[in-house]
């Protein structure tokens, strides 16, 4: 029931998004409406939805694998590794097509996440806060590496583009890779139960007949692909992967079979709203989506943590 309401609200927001921009659709020559929507408004709206949904799911899966609520791909080294991949491609093969860029970014992102998880596997389970600590420092190391390479190659400005996600450049022909991210995220629904069980730990997983390593690798692959595609096409968007799964978990628990659709919708909604606000708040200029998410998401999260959490808690 509430799921359908969410979906309707999301659809309404998405159609609003089609009408928001510097050019007022209602006052433009009708012949130009369709090209405008096709080339700019529609791609942008779809891009926000896909990014939000897939990042939220990637965050959720990462938290289950790490069995820790404070990790998310964009701050625990995966995003930074993807950025490193993009940067290296740009330095070594400046003329590489976007497919190669994306492939390399996915590979470095996967390498970065595998390394992160092999690090945290060794941490004692009695100290759960060590995991985000190692994540922050690990992400910092990779991030410093990115800055260093960029500094030496005089590409700091490029870095700025990948480090701060923005949708203002989203046009037809430049966002379609995000569909892959969306598909990768959607595929996780097929193995939702497996990921829920992984969240109960290795012993329980093995006991229930799961091949733990395979499922973990599958999850890491999905996280890396989603992260790399997002970084390549729109740049790093922090916080969605942290806030949305935590909010959904507070309200609806962690049984993925039930909550994954909610997580996807909430992520899509958050990014869409943030992008809308960003387009309107200093109209006709734009505020980057990451900035708006920081404000909107943070307030929503705090509210939930102190008010909404009580019910479930």
């Amino acid at each position: 029931m509430s799921k359908w309401l969410c979906l309707i609200a999301l659809a309404a927001l998405a159609s609003v998004s089609l009408f928001v921009g510097v050019i007022d659709l209602l006052r433009v020559d009708p012949a130009e409406i369709w090209p405008l929507i096709r080339d700019s408004r529609f791609p942008r709206t779809v891009a926000t939805l896909l990014t939000g949904a897939s990042l939220a799911i990637a965050g959720q899966i990462m938290q289950l694998i790490a069995r820790n609520r404070f990790v998310e791909p964009m701050t625990s080294g995966t995003g930074q590794s993807a950025a490193l991949g993009v940067l290296l491609t740009a330095v070594l093969f400046p003329t590489a097509p976007i497919g190669l860029k994306m492939g390399l970014a996915s590979i470095t992102a996967l390498g970065g996440s595998v390394l992160f998880f092999s690090l945290i596997r060794r941490l004692p389970p009695t100290q759960p806060l060590l995991v985000p600590l190692v994540g922050l420092i690990y992400g910092g190391i990779v991030g410093a590496g990115v800055t260093y390479v960029a500094f030496q190659a005089d590409m700091l400005q490029f870095i700025e583009i990948w480090m701060n996600g923005e949708f203002s450049g989203t046009l037809r022909g430049r966002y379609e890779l995000l569909w892959l991210a969306g598909i990768a995220a959607a595929l996780t629904y097929l193995v939702a139960d497996q990921f829920s069980i992984i969240g109960l730990g290795e012993a329980v997983s093995i006991n229930l007949g799961l091949s733990y390593r395979q499922v973990v690798m599958l999850g890491l692959l999905m996280i890396s692909v989603v992260t790399a595609l997002t970084v390549v096409t729109v740049g790093i968007i922090p916080f969605v992967g942290l806030v949305v799964p935590n909010m959904v978990s507070l309200m609806a628990g962690d049984n993925l079979r039930r909550t994954l659709p909610i997580t996807a919708m909430a992520g899509a909604g958050l990014v869409l709203i943030a992008d809308l606000v960003g387009r309107l708040v200093i109209y006709p200029f734009e505020m980057p989506v990451g900035t708006v998410i920081g404000v909107v998401g943070a307030i929503a999260f705090l509210w939930l943590l102190y008010k909404g959490g009580r019910r479930a808690g």
């Binding site: 289950l64 069995r67 829920s196 969240g199 507070l250 049984n255 479930a312």
Partner: peptide, 15 residues
């Protein structure tokens, strides 16, 4: 660490 209901947890026994 997961937030699961008791029924969810017991349900995973059937996995």
């Amino acid at each position: 660490a997961s937030r699961l209901t008791v029924r969810d947890l017991v349900g995973f026994g059937r996995y």
